[in-house]
């Protein structure tokens, strides 16, 4: 069975403390519960949570949904986004199964990056490492007034923004992530592959698409 690796790369810097980080925790919990109820996702999706504050941490390594236990993310420190990009790239290189012999390759991994700040470390170094891996959909989500220009370097075609980090907006975001992972029917396209946000379900009104 081909697996679909999904990496959630979440900002846990001090500015996320309080309601935002609580909403992130609830969002991850909700995401896992919803995916477990989807027989297709349950079979294919594997989830990992990577957080970044003053450094990056692999909080939950790539895990199948039945065994996945949602972590309790706490917020403190600054924003080591570059290190997080490097870490997720290293994890993907380690985790994602390539085709060999009779072993089928995993699907290209999906990455959802969420931040409310500016990188405080060597972002370009992390970005360069990140770009070395082959990814499926990459979505970068800017919370409050995160720098969307920076995020566009990570995901040129798919930067979205949440104007508030309250639980309603977070919940809408994680619901959309759930739908993106579980998407099934293929639309009829006029000859070309869909790219960027077009390959995902349309985001709900709480989420602005940054163009």
């Amino acid at each position: 069975m081909r697996r679909l690796p999904v990496y959630l790369v979440l900002d846990a810097s001090g500015s996320m403390s309080g309601e935002p980080i609580q909403a992130v925790n609830n969002g991850v919990q909700m995401l896992v519960s919803a995916l477990r109820q989807d027989p297709q996702a349950l079979e294919t999706a594997y989830l990992s949570v990577i957080t970044f504050d003053s450094s990056a941490h692999e909080l939950v390594p790539l895990t199948d949904l039945p065994s996945f236990q949602a972590p309790n993310v706490t917020a403190s420190g600054v924003t080591a986004m570059g290190e997080a990009l490097e870490l997720v790239a290293n994890c993907a290189r380690r985790d994602v199964i390539k085709a060999s012999g009779t072993q089928k390759a995993d699907w290209r991994p999906m990455v959802f990056i969420m931040t409310d700040g500016m990188p405080t470390d060597d972002f370009e170094k992390g970005l360069a490492r990140f770009k070395q891996e082959k990814w499926g959909a990459i979505v970068a989500c800017a919370v409050n007034d995160a720098d969307t220009d920076i995020l566009k370097k990570i995901a040129p075609e798919s930067v979205v923004a949440l104007d508030t980090a309250d639980s309603a907006a977070m919940s809408a975001f994680f619901k959309w992530v759930t739908a993106s992972i579980g998407l099934s029917s293929k639309s009829v396209q006029n000859g070309k592959e869909l790219e960027g946000l077009d390959q995902l379900p349309p985001p709900p009104p709480e989420i602005q698409v940054v163009v």
Binding site: A99, T102, K104, A105, D106, W107, R108
Partner: peptide, 11 residues
Amino acid sequence: GKIHDPEPGRD
């Protein structure tokens, strides 16, 4: 079990 291409989408 047949594998046609190393790239998963193409396979």
